[in-house]
Simulated assay, not measured.
Amino acid sequence: MAKRIIWLVALALTLGAGFAHAAPLKIGVLAPISGSSAADGNDIVKGVKTAVEVMKSEGGIPGFDSIEVEVQDGACDPRQAVAGANKLANSKVVGVVGEYCSSATIPASEVLNEEKITMITPASTNPKVTERGFKYMYRMCGLDIHQAKAATAFLKDQLKAKTIYIVDDKTTYSQHLAEYVAEAAKAAGITVIAHEHVNDGDMDYSAVLTKVKAANPDVFYMSLQSSSSGIRMIKQYRQMGIKAPVLSQDAVYHPNFIKEAPEQSQGVFFTFGYADKNSPVYKKFLDKYTAMHGEPGAYSAYSFDSAYALLTAIKAAKSTDADKIRAEMMKLNLPGASKVIKFQENGDSGSNYVIYKVEGDKYKEFWNPETGKLF
């Protein structure tokens, strides 16, 4: 009888250990799955899932037999993003990749930071994201102020612009970026003829574009929240026969912009982060992403890097404790698909904006503000 009891205890311990090992590691994604930025939001989800598969192919994370991804739709809406952050916290996720819009990331991060849950945004460029001293907040992309400097350097040094006409759609991201561009342009001696506003989701831009045509600026600066808005605006811009070169930014930069406006998009310039597409890490990302999802979107590489950095830190920490994860996050000097991942004390990872130009069906690297030279 004693032997039977010992055997049963041993069996229970074995099964218990097995169930402990079988516990999944859960990470969250908070992104706009619906609304005008849904294309970018779904790209973010796909990037995270790609990183999970790459990590699994590299042996996974000891102590967990699976890595689960839970997705919440933040819809680029502050209230919905907060609700999504609370759901992820209640689901006991270890970290969150998201949101896309700064207006959603900022309030959602308040929830997650209080719960000591690591958050890495792949796309929110507003400086406030990392200005609040939040210990568990990180950013993979660059900042608005640096994007504005790159845009202004291009306006002055390459386009030789004397005048510029700026339009944004009043979203937190696009308006703040447009304001930074306006300030930097004025400081560079470029006259801002006007800084107009439309509404996010407007279908007809004829009123503001009529003003642009009459003003005849050297450059038209288009700061909008999504590629869908950019597609509508560039089609109407070309239809009206406005001749000024167009410079836009990272939220409009998306494969859909070219696909859905193949003729009208030609020659449009963009600021977006530089990625070495010949690097081994980018090729590994691209091969896995393409096999799983098809063509990457604008923020696919940034979300891949966000998730991969989080998983790498968890693996190194051998723990899901937020402070231990942070200690490992701050040690990273990791080649990523979008950049070398190295976080500053405030959670930023640096900006690397260059100028792209639409040529044919591609975004071609055009000008590097760091060197002042064409690619």
Rank of each mutant, 00 (worst) to 15 (best):
V212I: 07
L159D: 11
Y274A: 10
M203A: 11
A207S: 15
M292N: 14
A244G: 09
P280I: 12
Q264G: 06
S34N: 07
N333G: 05
Y289Q: 04
G201C: 10
G18F: 12
Q225R: 04
I242C: 09
L11Y: 05
Y274L: 09
V281N: 03
C101Q: 02
A185M: 08
Y274V: 07
G360Q: 13
Y136V: 05
G133L: 07
A38Y: 00
K156F: 02
S279I: 13
M140S: 08
M55G: 03
F343T: 12
H21M: 09
H197R: 11
A108V: 11
L155N: 01
S57P: 00
E295G: 11
K373Q: 15
F304N: 03
D348T: 04
E114R: 13
V208G: 11
K243D: 11
Y299H: 12
N368R: 13
I341H: 11
R238S: 13
A337M: 10
T290Y: 09
K259L: 12
A188S: 15
A178K: 06
F257D: 04
M137T: 14
K315D: 06
F272P: 00
K92D: 14
I67C: 05
N256F: 04
I166W: 12
M240K: 10
A17D: 00
K87E: 13
F257R: 06
D202E: 10
K26N: 11
K211I: 05
D43P: 01
A309Y: 05
E328M: 15
E260T: 09
T50G: 01
Q158M: 12
I5K: 15
G41S: 11
L334M: 15
K156I: 03
S36C: 00
Y299S: 05
D218T: 03
K339D: 07
M240N: 06
K364P: 00
N352A: 12
W7D: 06
Q344T: 04
Y299K: 07
A275M: 15
A39K: 07
E183P: 02
K288Q: 14
T125I: 08
